[in-house]
Structures are given as C-alpha cells and as structure tokens.
Design a protein around this nucleic acid. Structure first.
Lengths: 203, 203
DNA sequence: AGAAAGAGTCTACGCTGTAGCCATGACTTC
DNA sequence: GAAGTCATGGCTACAGCGTAGACTCTTTCT
C-alpha cells in the first residue's frame, strides 16, 4: 500500500520504483491502476479521508458537535500519517465520498438556520485550520534536523518566546483554537443564544 | 532569484539546473551559497517572510489589531506566490527575523495580560489557520486539471454544496474566520460585554 | 612576492518518472 | 476447439534530476 510506504520512508524518499519493489512487482505495473504519481497521491489523500469513518460521526446531534468531531478526527487521522500530511494538504480532494460528506454537513447546518454560503464558509475555515495545524505539527515533529536549541531558563537570552514554549506544548492549542473559532462563529454579535456547548476548560 | 523562478514555473518543474540556467551560471555554483535544495527552499521561505515588512505593523496598538494585521499580511504575501505556498508551509521557519517577531508579539501580548503560553497558543492557531487557508486557496487556484464541474442550478444534482459554492467565493471566508477565532479567544467564556479582555491567569 | 580564499566549471554517479512495446494467461464468442 | 479480446505485468530506454569531487580562475590579504 502506497500510504504505508510513505509513512515508513517519507514522501521525499518515496518513489514508484520502491513502491513496485514493496509490492513485489514491476514498477511499471502501478501505472495500470494510476495514471501517474499525482493520481496515486490523490489516492493516498482519499485513503486518509476514508480513515475518518465519517458515517459514525454524530449526525443526529447539534451542528457544532458534528463539525467539532469531524475536525478532531481529521486532525488525528492526519497526525497518524505525518509523512503524508503534506500530500493531503496539497490537493483538493474531490472524491465522491468527500463531496457527499460536505453536502450532508451543509444540509445539517442549513437545517440549523445557516445560509448555505455561510455554512460552507465556516466549514472551509475549520478545514483550513485543521489541515494547517496538522501540517505545522507534522513538520515540527518530523523536522529532525537542527533542533530548536531553545535557551535554558537561566540563560540571558531566555526570552518570552522560550518561556511560552515551555508553558505550551507543541500541539495542545488545537482544541482551544477550534473552540475559539466555533465560539466566534456561533456568537458573531457577541450575543449569547441557543446552542452553546460547554467548553472544556483549558489546562 | 529562486523565488521568482518558482513563481514562474512551479515547484515541481523547478530544478537546480534550471535555476543555474536562469542565473546564467553553472548549476553547481548555487551550492556555494546553499548546502542543498532544502536549504535553498528555507531561503525562499525566509524571502516570503521578509515581504511581510513586519516593522510597519501597528506595534503600538492593541494586540488584536496587531495579530490581525499580521495574519492578513501573511495571507497576502503567501497568495502572491501561490507556487511557493507549499514550500513555506512545510518548513519551520526559525530565522532570526521570524523569531524576533515572535518574541516581540508575545511581549506585547503578555503586556496585555496574557500568560506567555496562552499568547503562544493563540499565535500558533492564527498562523496555522492563515497558512492552511493560503495553502488551500493556492491549491484550488493552481489545480487547473479537471475543474470542479459544478452542476447547473437547474440540474437535478444541484445540491446544497453547489448552492453554497455559488453564495461563497473561494477566498472570502478568511476575514470572517479570523474575526471569529479572535472573538473566541478574546471572549473565551462566551459571555458578551467588554470583549478582548484577556483571561484571568491560568492554573 | 606568495598564500589563501572565494567563485564558477566540468564530469560523473546513482537515482527518478514514465513512454513504448511485448509476454502471458483468463475469458468470451463463434 | 479456435480465435479474438482484455487485463495484467515485465523489460528496455530516455531524458532529466540532486549533488559529490576535483579542477581552474580571480580577488584579496600578508
């Protein structure tokens, strides 16, 4: 499986020839099933999307729970394949399954009173934040090269950034960020109203 | 200039040899200045960051204006180089200039009452959303291949997603998303009133 | 004067994506 | 059974890639 090989050796080291070798098959045989490497990467993106298992999302609950769950699952699925996040992030993903999920979500949100355009805007924001987060985190975790060499707490150049980095883990801002964005969308005028899921306390 | 060449022919078509040809120089000459292609791409990312011209940001105003301006400028700079967005998004950017900007921003936010860790979390969220947005948009705009073939409004398969896409342009959700996230961070308890008051100290 | 450093060039190696053509076996249609 | 079609995989070959290593030429420092 192409995704597994990318997970193992990374996107840069990946090649059609190695994929063929992994499958015990001539490299050119892969081209029977995919037009070219781009198409194969499209398949990888779809495979990651399939791991979301969108059917088991809380489709019957409030829209906020649904999109929050969706975002968390997407994040987790992406971080499970750090070497493939960039592949996922750099293509549109117009597979029927993805489109169907999008339609279903917009339907649910229009049912909750959103205009279709507004619903789509919110979903795009969430997706972009989630993908951006996963990509940034994957890059950080993989980028083994020269590590950040953060100054020690008693060093003179120990600045606020370093202290902030000590206080904040690399990935623990996703849930707060997601909640903040949803809060902002749910309550755009600052008025409190109907559905406001209780936010998990930060830290 | 490497960035200009990437802008022109795209990242995939880019090669050290073509860069050398563009500069009217032997391809290997580039290796005098950059260890390898990765280091050169690091330089491209730094060049994009330099275009932000962070010194002219509203450093004397409220933190929210600052980070909002910063995000908008980052988005604009990235979208000005659609072929290079993926390059920017897939490396950590630890240049001195970028670190100094981060330190300065965190300083301003702690001055406004934030804990350093919380400030850093907020900045990370904004950066990830911004980069994710620019990347998604660049991919959409460049991905010429099979266009989306959205169904016509009177076609039977004209669904809510298509209607949403008609109502919402590709890129017009960035400002609302940014505002929503900032609203959410400024008013984390969901209570209306004097927004943008930082949270009481954590733990 | 010589030494050292910097800049650019040339060659070569192992790797890449993939076009084109051929071999094989299974299945369909007479 | 015979003949044709089709899916699958193998092999070869080509143009291009990143870059290691050794070389030359020019400028600057002592």
């Amino acid at each position: 499986m192409a995704l597994a090989l990318v997970d193992e050796i990374g996107r840069d080291a990946f090649s059609m020839r190695k994929l063929g070798a992994e499958l015990g098959v001539d490299p050119m045989a892969v081209y029977r099933y995919f037009d070219d490497q781009e198409a194969l990467f499209d398949g990888i993106a779809e495979a990651i999307f399939a791991e979301l298992d969108v059917d088991t999302l809380p489709w019957d609950g409030p829209w906020r729970d649904l999109v929050e769950q969706y975002s968390v699952r997407l994040r987790d699925a992406l971080l499970a394949h750090p070497h493939a996040v960039a592949i996922f992030a750099t293509r549109p993903l117009r597979s029927p399954a993805a489109i169907a999920t999008g339609v279903r979500t917009v339907e649910l949100m229009t049912g909750a009173g959103f205009a279709a355009g507004d619903a789509l805007r919110i979903l795009r924001c969430l997706r972009e934040f989630t993908v951006g987060h996963a990509l940034g985190l994957a890059v950080l975790r993989l980028g083994g090269r020269r590590r950040s060499r953060k100054p020690a707490p008693d060093a003179p150049e120990y600045n606020l950034l370093a202290r902030g980095a000590d206080e904040a883990d690399d990935g623990d801002h996703f849930a707060p960020g997601l909640a903040a964005m949803l809060d902002g969308f749910a309550d755009p005028a600052g008025r409190s109203g109907d559905a406001r899921a209780p936010r998990p306390p930060r830290t």
